[in-house]
Simulated assay, not measured.
Amino acid sequence: MTEFREVRRTSLLPDQIAADIMSKITEGQLVPGDTLPTEHALAGTFGVSRNVVREAIARLRSDGVVESRQGRGAVVKPITERETFRVDIQALGKSGNLADLFELRGLLEIEAAGLAAVRRTSLDLEDMGKAIAELDGELHFDERRLEADAAFHRAVGKATGNAYLYGIICYISSRLKETARVTSDVYEKDDLLQVTREEHRRVLRAIEAGDRTGARTAMAAHISGASERLKVPVRSVSRL
């Protein structure tokens, strides 16, 4: 029987419960075809109301992780049948997950930078420049600079002219904000913001020059550098 722990009462309860259930699925404690405990049972286990549990399950259903079946309740879906792509922040600390995410980021963003170099508009370049400018004036990342970092990657994604590629880059960049916070604790030097800013500038210069190869190379160096600063071993980013 899968065991859940009681959660503290906060406004984030549904998210916490959904994340806990998702972690059990990711770790294989709940497998495709398994039925979740009843709302009543989960409410008692987590120490919350059934409405909170219902909202948490609704979020998992919206993400395509579970589905409701007549007479059975919420059933875990196979990953091959999920309609949505989801990065579970709670699971990034598990072995290999963060490395996999960085590898995916490389596969997507390196090619995106190359496409941006040949498709970008003057507005795209302006958006990238504004994001980099937001990184100036401070020595360390704060919430404003974390958002500016993510905004730069979104602008590169938008410059590809591919709505689907742009959408997934936006999603991943929002999830990677937490890795930037962690890097600030792991990275031993005090030039994190300066290094990140310069790597972004190299990408922008190549995109502005219409240099597809140079843009891909600069983005590969940035992602490889980011993974190294976080001490995350990535299999293929440096070779892309």
Rank of each mutant, 00 (worst) to 15 (best):
Q70A: 14
Q70G: 08
G73K: 01
G73Q: 02
G73N: 01
A74Q: 02
V76W: 00
K77H: 01
T80N: 00
T80Q: 04
E81L: 05
R82N: 00
R82F: 06
E83Q: 04
T84Y: 09
F85D: 12
R86N: 09
R86M: 05
I89F: 07
A91R: 04
L92I: 02
G93W: 05
K94W: 04
K94Y: 09
K94H: 10
S95G: 02
N97W: 04
L98C: 04
L98D: 03
A99S: 15
A99M: 08
F102S: 10
E103K: 11
R105K: 15
R105G: 14
L108A: 07
I110H: 02
E111D: 09
E111A: 07
A112V: 01
G114L: 11
A116M: 03
V118H: 04
R119W: 11
R119N: 15
L123E: 12
D124M: 02
L125W: 08
L125Y: 06
E126W: 10
E126F: 14
D127R: 15
D127P: 00
D127T: 15
M128P: 09
M128C: 12
A133M: 15
L135K: 13
E138Q: 15
E138R: 15
L139M: 14
L139I: 06
L139H: 09
H140T: 07
F141C: 07
D142H: 07
L146I: 10
L146E: 09
E147Q: 14
E147S: 14
E147C: 05
A148M: 06
A148D: 12
D149H: 08
H153S: 03
H153Q: 05
H153A: 10
R154I: 01
R154Q: 02
A155T: 03
A155M: 00
K158S: 13
K158Y: 01
T160E: 08
T160W: 06
T160Q: 10
N162W: 09
N162A: 12
Y164E: 11
Y164K: 11
L165I: 14
L165R: 11
G167D: 09
I169T: 05
I169K: 05
I169Y: 01
C170F: 01
Y171K: 10
I172A: 13
I172P: 03
S173N: 12
K177C: 06
T179M: 13
R181E: 11
T183Q: 13
S184G: 12
D185W: 11
D185R: 13
D185M: 13
V186F: 02
E188W: 07
E188D: 10
K189M: 14
K189A: 15
D190L: 07
D191Y: 08
D191A: 12
L193W: 07
L193K: 02
Q194C: 07
V195H: 00
T196L: 06
T196Y: 03
T196H: 05
E198C: 00
E199C: 02
H200N: 04
R201L: 06
R201K: 10
V203F: 04
L204Q: 08
R205D: 13
R205V: 07
A206R: 01
E208V: 05
A209L: 08
